[in-house]
Structure formats: structure tokens, C-alpha cells
Amino acid sequence: MPRVDASSRVRFDGHWRAELNDYVIALAWSPDGKRIAAAAVSGEIRVFDASGEVAPVTLPGHAMGTNALDWHPDSTRLASIGQDGKAVVWDVQTGQAVHTLKTGASWGERALWSPKGDVLATAAGKLVRLWNAHGEQIREFSDHASTVADIAWKPGTDHLAVGAYGGAVIWSASSAEPIRKLTWQGSTLKLCWSRDGSVLAAGQQDSSIIFWDARKPEPSMMWGYPTKVRELAWDRFSKYLATGGGETVIVWKFGSKGPEGTKPIQLGAHQDLLTTLAFQQRGDILASGGQDGVVLAWLPGKREAPLGGLRGIGAVSHIVWSPDDRYLAIGDDQGSVMVTEIVPE
């Protein structure tokens, strides 16, 4: 796509739109760009053709509700997890469940493929289980102070960060013992590794963020957010960390100085709490979505006003970029899934 700079504007060019039967709780674009999977909070999962031209495939999902989705790197399989305590690996061609995995608790929170795709991690209750390609459990990590809220594979490695009350624990798929315990008194809600793997950021229930920088001995805390922080996104250079926790997008700049002791970039235009943030894979545009039903595109560090925006229908629940950075998929609280092209002008 053409370069976007501070003098640019972008247009949101509606592409297609479809409906689920409930709040879009998970939204994922397949790595090959061909499909978009969306889950309704009440359970239904639909796999859409990204072009919008082929009818979607509906998967039964999870009886009590689906909580999370993740595409396998090869884009043929989709993992889901839900409140029936199960994780399921689906073959998206046939719509059949390939593996049905017992997560060990009644409420499955996250399912996430390792970067190589050889391991699936599931988080349910205090348990994190790792499964191999045959659906066989290879590890169980249980040393967590509370229900696991989020998990995140460190880019390019088999290291898995597990966030719960009390900070985060770094495990490895090749070891039964934790690699590192990142202790913090507080409740971690969301984890996000910088793309170079040097910094792990954690959004907290107590309206703050913590980050552990591999180059520094102690974690840092950034506070002053109006509410809990669940929206985190790193840019491609691991230089900017965009955070939510309120109506204003707060962007911390990582560099030789800071972010400790620096003033963050503040991007304000939303009229209600932010719900989701996503940076492009190879571009610099940050997309933000909020309870106000608005999606905005930003160029943090270069421009304070939005590049452009889109008013949706309901409160935005998720935004994901297409792998080629040309499109945004947007989910909302009414069950709508929209795909829109981001066109520089």
C-alpha cells in the first residue's frame, strides 16, 4: 500500500458486512489473508471468506459461550476455547473438529498457537496446558496465583508468558520449570510482547500498565489511567506501545530515554472508553475502536489528529488488520462483522 505520512488522510472504504447472533467476542484474520473467523459470546463461530464473496462456514462453537479464537500459522486450522471447558481444533475446510481438548477447568479463557505452530497453549482456570499437533497434552503449568487472564508467546520462541494475579510467569514448551517469574502485586489482564521480544507489557486491573524490559533489572509501572487497561498494541519497530484504559489512546515511546519519566503521546478523539487497539504489521497506522462505536486511524508520533475514521453501529469489540495491512476487520457488540479497506488519500 502507498506510504502514509503526517499530511495524509485515509478513507474507510466499506467492503462487506455480515452478522453473528451475538456480541463479537473474538475476531481473527487467517495468516494467509483468505479467511476471517469470528466468535459470538454466546458460542457460535463463523468463518468468512475475506473477499466476502463465498458464504461463511458456521462452526458449532462452545455450548456455554466461546471466549477466544486463534488461527494456526498454516491457516488451515482454527483453535477455539470456551465456557464448556473445552478447546477445539477445527479443520476450516470441512468444518469438523480435529481435536477436542480438555482444558482442566470449566471456563476456558485463551487458546494460542506457538509461533511455529507446533504447540497449542490453552488457559483455563489456573491451568495452562500445552498440546502437540496430535492433540496430545505435553505440559501442564499450574503455578499461578489466580485464574489465568491472558497468555502470549514470545515472538519467534517457544516461551509462553502467562498473566494472572501476581504478575506473569514465563514458561518454555521445552521445560516443566518456569524460566522466569515476573512478580508484581496486582492483577494482570492482558499481555503483549514487543515484536522484537525485548519487552513484555501487561495491562492491569488497577488502572496501570507494567512492563518488563529484558534490558532492565526492574519492572516499570505507568499509572494514571481512568480505568483498567486491556488494550495494548506494539508497533513494528517495538518503539511505540499504544494503550487504552480510558477514552484517550496513550502511546509510550521506548528508546534510549524512557518511557520512564517521559510524557506519553495522547491521542484523543473517542467519546467513550476504548475497547481495542491494533497496529499494522508492516505499516505505522494504529487503529483504535471504542464503546462510542467509532474506529479511528492514527499515526502516533507523527500526527495528533486521526487520519480518518469510521462510525460503526454498536460499540466496537475488536479490530484486526489483514495480513497485507490493507483492510480492517471490525467486530461490534451487536454481532456485526465489517471489513473495510483503508485507502490513503
Binding site: 482456570g125 492483577s187 488497577d206 496501570s208
Partner: peptide, 8 residues
């Protein structure tokens, strides 16, 4: 599970 979270 009655998980009580104390803050920092």
C-alpha cells in the same frame, strides 16, 4: 473461585 485481588 472467590479470587480476591489486592492492588499494588
Amino acid at each position: 473461585d472467590e479470587e480476591v485481588f489486592e492492588m499494588n
